[in-house]
């Protein structure tokens, strides 16, 4: 049976060891962490499987811009791969851009991503490129590295419905699926559409999503990328009134429902 997982970014404050202790007690068996050694160590200590890490993405647009910030970003991404390799974590999730108007794709950025992919191959770590607002850059990746098994797809269900103008990514790249970020929202309207709320609290068609996953080669855990950050948009959904335990229980139930949908698909 597929494991159920949740990301460490769910936790805005508090102790990471407590987080793992609570989610383990509730029944979660897997997670993805940020690229922080402290989180990785805590997950290992708690006996929670780390499916992947999320590589850094603040400043990701610098990958396409000349200068030191771009070199720094590339170095941080390589460090993130090294961290995976050091802890035998097989995959890390990578962004390609940020915002609706990032720098256009260019030779410099291609060269940097080439260097990143080469580094990942050398270290035996798969790079899972995540869907965001644009199509060209991720389509480029799957054409440019079509024969590279270390290049894969991370499907973010929430990004797809709030930021992609109705595009569906799984029919395009589902055959390369290696990671999932399962989360919900209410579409593209409003100032903060990328809500990262729990599945079934928004408008994602989870039956269809489950079918998409079932049809793909992905057999990894059902992993949520949902937040419980008091005072944020999630407050609207009443999460602020839930204790940590109650929130994670609700998250677990949502993940279990998705697992059932996948199994029945």
């Amino acid at each position: 049976m597929r494991k159920l997982g949740i990301c460490t970014a769910t936790l805005k404050k508090g102790d990471i060891n407590d987080f793992f202790s609570i989610i383990k007690n509730i029944g979660f068996e897997a997670c993805f962490t940020e690229a922080f050694e402290s989180e990785i160590k805590a997950a290992i200590k708690a006996g929670i499987e780390i499916d992947n890490t999320h590589s850094p993405f603040d400043g990701i647009n610098n990958m396409w811009v000349e200068g030191e910030p771009g070199e720094t970003m590339l170095r941080r991404l390589k460090d993130s791969i090294d961290l995976c390799a050091a802890y035998d974590i097989k995959k890390t999730v990578i962004h390609l851009s940020s915002g609706y108007h990032p720098p256009r794709m260019n030779d410099l950025g291609f060269a940097r991503y080439d260097a990143l992919v080469e580094h990942a191959i050398k270290k035996g770590v798969t790079l899972a490129f995540e869907n965001q607002r644009l199509l060209a850059n991720i389509a480029y990746v799957f054409e440019q590295y079509k024969d590279v098994p270390e290049v894969a797809f991370c499907w973010d269900t929430g990004h797809e419905i709030c930021a992609a103008g109705g595009r569906e990514y799984m029919p395009l790249f589902g055959h390369r699926l290696a990671c999932v970020h399962l989360e919900d929202n209410h579409g593209s309207e409003g100032p903060h559409p990328d809500q990262h709320i729990l599945p079934f609290d928004g408008i994602v068609d989870w039956k269809k999503a489950a079918q998409r996953i079932k049809n793909s080669p992905y057999n990894g855990p059902v992993i949520l990328e949902c937040y419980n950050h008091p005072g944020s948009i999630t407050n609207y959904f009443g999460y602020d009134h839930l204790s940590d335990e109650a929130f994670y229980e609700r998250a677990y139930d949502a993940a279990a429902r998705i697992r059932d949908l996948i199994e029945k698909a």
Binding site: M105, L134, L135, A136, A139, Y140, E143, Q144, L172
Partner: peptide
């Protein structure tokens, strides 16, 4: 797909 997507974007 990438080059058409690129042109459209």
């Amino acid at each position: 797909l990438a080059n058409v997507a690129y042109a459209m974007e």
